[in-house]
């Protein structure tokens, strides 16, 4: 795995170097693009724990992305209107402090993941794919009809939320926040993959019966993985909403689920840095092809199709060779 590790370090350094360079050249747009890559990669890192490590093909991770986004939108909109969210049984006020927003986003998406996971994991295979998709769609329609927080039009926040000690309105400082969170998540998922839990989860993916035979419960392993995976994607959702200062039902749409999955797959399933490579390539394609043609998603579709049919190891597979896995 030496070459893969080297490649990973190079990718992380590149993600850090590009915005620093752009900062020197005073190109704030490029910093914003890099921030977007970091945040979307974070969403992919979350999904990769369920998908790569646990083998759970969730087509509903936009649910957690959106829950995180709405956690930010709800708290921040109450803070900017000086109204408490509710005053009974205890006073709960809005907030524009990122740490508190993140905590809320993580708790909310973990609860969502617990409920969705407990129901969906009763099934497997195609049923699991369709059910996660359906629950995501349920939240999407709920957000559309929930007029108190913008309904179909979404919810705008006037000023980006605050991080103690930093000026988040400065693009490079906000990038630093997103990059820091991404590094933590990557470190965490590397530790998780090597932990006893991660090994058991991986084993349950490869051979459910053997895991049961040694006395472990695959359902519990998978549920825990799902509840770890969801909040990481949820945290990415909160950051993404903060980047745009806007949250809308689109974050919950199944296209978003598909895109998060594309990040993971483009890079290579189960590879730790797959989501980073995938998100970077996706944003680059969107930026470059989007400039050439309004219909750039045709090319994205063709690329993805070619990838699935002919290049199974993902983009990381090309430079570092196949193998991989978690």
């Amino acid at each position: 795995m030496g070459r893969e590790r080297l490649f990973n370090a190079a990718m992380l350094l590149a993600l850090l170097a590009v915005p620093l360079l752009a900062w020197g050249l005073q190109e704030p747009f490029i910093i914003t693009l890099a921030t977007k890559v970091a945040i979307l990669a974070l969403a992919g890192v979350g999904l990769n724990i369920a998908l790569g490590l646990g083998g759970l093909v969730s087509l509903g991770h936009a649910a957690f992305f959106g829950i995180g986004g709405y956690a930010m939108g709800t708290l921040a909109s109450h803070a900017q209107n000086y109204e408490p969210l509710f005053s009974w049984p205890f006073l709960f006020e809005g907030s524009n402090q990122m740490p508190l927003i993140w905590l809320t986003a993580v708790l909310a998406s973990a609860s969502g993941a617990l409920v969705i996971g407990a129901l969906s994991l009763r099934t497997s295979g195609v049923y699991f794919i369709m059910i996660t998709l359906a629950f995501c769609q349920m939240l999407y329609y709920f957000a559309i009809s929930w007029s108190a927080y913008g309904g179909e039009d979404g919810l705008s926040i006037w000023v980006r939320n605050e991080m103690p000690g930093l000026n988040t309105l400065d693009p490079i400082q906000f990038f630093a926040v997103a990059f820091g969170v991404l590094c933590l998540a990557l470190w965490f998922s590397a530790r998780l993959a090597r932990s006893a839990f991660g090994l058991a989860l991986s084993a349950a993916r490869q051979s459910e019966e053997r895991v049961e035979t040694v006395g472990l419960a695959p359902f519990k392993l998978r549920l825990v993985a799902f509840v770890i995976s969801g909040p990481i994607t949820g945290l990415a959702g909160a950051l993404f909403a903060d980047l745009n200062r806007f949250v809308s039902p689109t974050m919950l749409s199944w296209h978003t689920s598909g895109e998060i999955m594309i990040f993971v797959i483009l890079g290579g399933v189960g590879r730790l840095y797959g989501p980073l490579v995938g998100a970077a390539v996706y944003i680059l394609l969107e930026h470059l092809l989007g400039g050439i043609s309004e219909y750039w998603q045709i090319f994205l579709g063709l690329l993805l199709l070619g990838m699935v049919l002919f290049a199974r190891g993902g983009l990381i597979g090309a430079p570092v060779g196949s193998g991989g896995g978690a």
């Binding site: 998908l51 219909y295 994205l300 990838m307 699935v308």
Partner: peptide, 21 residues
């Protein structure tokens, strides 16, 4: 199933954008 999901998702992108075009 993962490959099937991805490839058919790619087909959606191609069909939708092709029709828009």
């Amino acid at each position: 199933h993962l490959d099937q999901v991805l490839a058919t998702f790619a087909l959606i992108l191609i069909f939708s954008e092709g029709t828009r075009w």
